[in-house]
Design a protein around this nucleic acid. Structure first.
Lengths: 343, 343
DNA sequence: TTTTAAATTTTACCCCCGTAAAGTTTTTGA
DNA sequence: TCAAAAACTTTACGGGGGTAAAATTTAAAA
């Protein structure tokens, strides 16, 4: 780090003794220039502190190295965790992740789409809000930017969808619960925020009918993203009303289950498998905190890593081929049973 | 949305019948042009879909409307929640937040600083890793970009620090615990990831000495950001070794407490206040999930909202004056006791 | 050594907008 | 109504770099 300040590529080309277009070529792909040229540039790089201006670069490219990541609610540890995985994969691929949270708001989601389009991303990984999404806005965005949807499925949008197999996973835990005790009732939000919830509800109903057990839906009121709160309040209500039709509760997701466990605890109902237990409670997702509940939550896992990896992989195959997918594929990863002490 | 496609400001100026420099002026401040001119531009804006190219804008400004937000670990709901608050305040102020997580890694933190500097942000809100931070890198960044530090304090860096009063808050809960039962032992990580932990440890020691109670530090092994795991394992260990010197445990933060509660539960130790309880456990932070633990966690809150608001306020007073602070101020918000059922 | 292909340089133009300077029009206020 | 002030237009330049085309050099192959 010596010598004069370098203001632009012109000056850097000068001090490194190479022409500017070749320097430009180097920065776009160091392997595209002769080895000896590369060496000269890199030795100049050690002497002088220079890097190309990102705005000037992006202005001249139709596409940038930016990859947008949009999640519906980043303060939900599930999305935080999957976003973390996605970011790291995108970085590893030499791209630049731009992480945006819609904070549960349709307006914010639309703003995020606009912000993203303004920076001409090479592609985007989207988990839309779902029910609350402005479908037309999602569609416009996907048309303009190669996108892979993950977690929340909106039919027909994006070049691909990568997500969790809600149906298989729900059936799996239903079967486990039926095999090991009373058939479960299903605890959920009456009007779920997340579209996966509908698939889980349907899968539960189907599974129970197939096994010849009664279907019991326990529906909590409330909207938004404060699932634990809804679980706690809804859980308290069903317990107080003695409206539990069975001793086994399958919650639509782990966050609801965490709330429900709190409700059970506060009402003095012991949850677990042993003789002294009054209730079995299971969740869905293998949420980062589900192993720390009391008792530890039995659940079905989502394969976070696989979903993140495949989403990124699928997106880059689009981005790097420069083509749009001829046929939209949908990839589902199976859930695994995570047996802990709550059910 | 009719008419031909507009490619740039030149063309837009043409169709709106105004000169390009005036149009440019309008986009920088709609109030800086005559009312009638503004009306003509805005009616053209309704007919034609045009917005200025963000890269070209930023290339020509020394400063952008970008505000960097760097947090050490976004998958920690505490940071997710505070980032959410910060983002919304920054947006409300008409700026553009760029949220970056260091994912607990020094290298990533430094990369984040570089990425941010590359986009010439008007300012930055930083919560450094702390102990793991590359101090020189933080200092360089703060010298180059007006920055307000929050949550984790590194002395002398940034134009201001806004955070939680760890000392007051720790003393508050110590006094509460001593007043209502046995004096607490302090459960923490031996080598804490977060710098606040050291202040809490010291405040605990001081408070106990001042009140004439013995100081007991229970130190869990392990590093990183998986605090619940450390709390569970460390808690299991101290319980198994019968090395609990008192029936009251004050955890250095809520996430450790969540782990500790799980340990107690799994070891059959009933936590709470009543007669049947073997243990009291308290935390620190009022973590988003602390109200859903079993039993609900007694803790001291951090004033998330105030910290976020003041940080943003302080940063914009710098940004908009265009000056650097003559004297660095440090603002601490007091914690409040949150009494729930665990202690 | 010659031929050929590949890499580089030169030249030139483009991207899209900020902004300063000078000249022109419109608005304001007395 | 008229001069001063304000707003606008025209003109011109600059920012930092992508990229195409033609000319030149270098390296590899025959």
């Amino acid at each position: 780090m010596t010598g004069r300040k370098i203001r632009n590529m012109e000056e850097f080309a000068e001090v490194s003794g190479i022409s500017r277009p070749t320097v430009s070529k180097y920065f776009n792909d160091p392997d595209s220039v002769r080895k000896s040229t590369r060496a000269r540039i890199e030795s100049a790089l050690e002497q002088y502190d220079y890097r190309p201006n990102i705005f000037a670069i992006n202005q001249n490219r139709k596409l940038t190295k930016n990859i947008g990541i949009v999640v519906p609610y980043l303060a939900d540890p599930f999305f935080a965790e999957i976003a973390r995985n996605l970011e790291m994969l995108v970085i590893a691929a030499g791209y630049h992740p731009i992480l945006l949270s819609s904070h549960g708001s349709t307006a914010q989601e639309n703003d995020n789409f606009e912000s993203l389009r303004a920076i001409k991303p090479a592609g985007a990984l989207l988990a839309p809000l779902g029910r609350a999404s402005d479908k037309a806005a999602v569609e416009r965005f996907c048309k303009a930017v190669p996108s892979v949807l993950f977690d929340s499925h909106i039919s027909g949008m994006g070049e691909a969808f990568v997500g969790h197999d809600n149906i298989q996973a729900t059936k799996l835990i239903c079967e486990y619960l039926c095999r090991t005790g009373q058939p479960p009732a299903f605890f959920e939000m009456r009007t779920p925020t997340n579209p996966n919830a509908y698939r889980r509800r349907n899968a539960y109903c189907e599974a129970m009918e197939r096994m010849g057990h009664p279907v019991h839906l326990l529906q909590a009121e409330g909207g938004g993203w404060d699932f634990e709160k809804i679980g706690l309040e809804g859980g308290t209500k069903v317990i107080e009303e003695h409206s539990l039709p069975t001793d086994t509760i399958l919650c639509s997701n782990d966050r609801l289950a965490i709330g429900f466990l709190a409700a059970a605890y506060q009402k003095g109902l012991r949850v677990g498998l042993g003789a002294g237990a009054a209730l079995r409670v299971a969740g869905h997702d293998d949420h980062p905190f589900s192993r720390y509940t009391c008792p530890p939550l039995t659940t079905v896992s989502q394969d976070y890593t696989a979903i993140a990896e495949r989403s990124v992989e699928r997106l880059f195959s689009l981005v790097e081929s420069g083509e749009r997918a001829e046929n939209r594929d949908e990839i589902f990863f199976e859930g695994k049973l995570v047996m802990r002490q709550s059910a």
